[in-house]
């Protein structure tokens, strides 16, 4: 049946994109509105708060800077894995995708340490709205990271069988997974200053 659905691996002549690419961009548009709602809530709550702690006073900025660099690196390895696949270099593709997964896991581990030290200092979501926002935003972001890890692991192992039969469709999937991954990176690029530096 999938043979009957057009533009799975080749782009549509008028729109210029494949189904998967249009789909993932629509998904990212809705994700943008999701985080838009949360950022909006952040502005409202901060704007009406009588006091709001400076992020660097209560959060660990060096650790978060390290995490930012890790996430940026993972974005680069993700795009490199796509480029390697487009160049038909399967070995490099696997290397870069594995690196992406390892870096994202490293991000999650560091995040876990950060959460742990917050709990040790008795900082919980219920402490005040700053910590409420901190845990909600970073928690939701971490769920997105976890989702990306699952998708990338699938594409690295069982999903890569598709490359043998439909190489172009598989390349499209890697690109879509990459777009999602860069979006997660993008969210962090804004979360980092908003929560830690301001």
């Amino acid at each position: 049946m999938s043979a009957l659905i057009r533009y799975i691996s080749k782009p549509h002549p008028v729109s210029g994109v494949t189904n998967a690419k249009l789909g993932i961009w629509c998904f990212l548009a809705s994700e943008l509105m999701l985080f838009g709602g949360l950022f909006s809530a952040y502005i409202v709550l901060r704007g009406s708060a009588s006091e709001w702690p400076h992020g660097s006073a209560v959060l660990n900025v060096p650790l978060a800077t390290l995490n930012t660099l890790i996430l940026i690196s993972s974005s680069v390895t993700m795009v490199m894995s796509w480029a390697s696949l487009a160049l038909k270099n399967l070995k490099k593709f696997r290397f870069h995708l594995s690196m992406t997964i390892l870096l994202s896991l490293a991000f999650l581990v560091i995040k876990g340490f950060e959460y742990h030290s917050k709990f040790e200092h008795h900082h919980f979501p219920s402490t005040d709205n700053f910590f409420g926002m901190y845990f909600t935003l970073t928690g939701l972001h971490a769920i997105h990271i976890l989702g990306g890890v699952i998708v990338n692991a699938y594409l690295l192992f069982p999903g890569s069988k598709l490359y043998e039969t439909e190489p172009e469709q598989f390349l499209g999937r890697i690109e879509a997974a990459g777009l999602y991954w860069h979006f997660v990176d993008l969210v962090w690029i804004f979360l980092f200053p908003v929560l830690y530096l301001l």
């Binding site: 210029g16 994109v17 943008l32 909006s40």
Partner: peptide, 23 residues
């Protein structure tokens, strides 16, 4: 990127800004 994707993102960006103006 193709035009259609830019159009969708421009539309989204407009509503995103409306949402941010809410406060």
């Amino acid at each position: 990127e193709a035009k259609i994707i830019r159009y969708i993102l421009i539309l989204t960006a407009i509503f995103f800004l409306v949402l941010l103006l809410l406060p």
